[in-house]
């Protein structure tokens, strides 16, 4: 399918979420151009820079000078705290996990096989 990513409507704030998710997925701090390359959109460097500054002002990310610009990373204390809360809520509590809309819940072996086979098939027209 030759449809460009981001072809659809993009609600307000979703680019910020994507930039934040990109930084969270990275193992190293990223510069604005690193983020620009990692995003699936054709965004101008300045747009990415603006989003990063906005996230910085909201205390969602941290940065330090590196080279001619800055590198950015996700604030660790908040992310660790969120993980603690999530773990204490969900681990060992299948009743709680069951009420949530999880993006992808786990599979048993048979389902995993079916899924792998499905992915190997060519797409139906």
């Amino acid at each position: 399918m030759a449809v460009t990513a981001g072809a659809g409507r993009r609600p307000h704030g979703s680019l910020e979420a994507e930039v934040l998710a990109t930084l969270a997925a990275a193992s190293e701090p990223m510069s604005a151009s690193d983020v620009q390359r990692a995003l699936p959109h054709d965004l101008a460097y300045n747009t990415v820079q603006t989003i990063l500054i906005r996230l910085l002002e909201k205390d969602a990310v941290q940065r330090r000078p590196e080279g001619r610009g800055h590198v950015y990373w996700l604030r660790h204390t908040e992310a660790a705290e969120a993980a603690r809360t999530m773990r204490s809520t969900l681990v060992g509590r299948p009743d709680r996990a069951a009420v949530l809309q999880q993006f992808a819940a786990g599979l048993d072996d048979a389902d995993a096989e079916v899924l792998r086979a499905l992915l190997a098939e060519p797409e139906s027209p």
Partner: peptide, 16 residues
Amino acid sequence: ALATRPVLALGGSSVV
């Protein structure tokens, strides 16, 4: 879904 297993064995058939 394949990455999630076997953390939570829930709703697998639903994913398929």
